[in-house]
């Protein structure tokens, strides 16, 4: 079974984060939400592995503020 990676794994993380913000520049809330949704689906398809995706959903849900 594949394990979800929860340690730093993105090559040049600051660049990625900046690119993510830039993609949202000038978008209203609805368009931003739509972009996030499309991005999520593109990434999920790239990962593909259902086990990893299930762990990712759980990891994201678990990190909600209490």
């Amino acid at each position: 079974m594949s394990e979800l990676i929860l340690t730093p794994n993105i090559d040049r993380g600051d660049d990625f984060y900046a690119a993510l913000l830039k993609a949202h520049d000038g978008l209203n809330k609805a368009d931003s939400d739509a972009l996030n949704a499309r991005l999520l689906l593109v990434l999920a398809n790239h990962i593909g592995d259902g086990e990893v995706l299930a762990q990712a959903i759980e990891a994201a849900a678990n990190a909600a503020p209490r």
Binding site: A30, D33, A34, A37, R38, L40, L41, V42
Partner: peptide, 10 residues
């Protein structure tokens, strides 16, 4: 709805 529309746009 946002997710559904994202699927259709993609």
């Amino acid at each position: 709805r946002t997710l559904r529309d994202a699927v259709l746009d993609l």
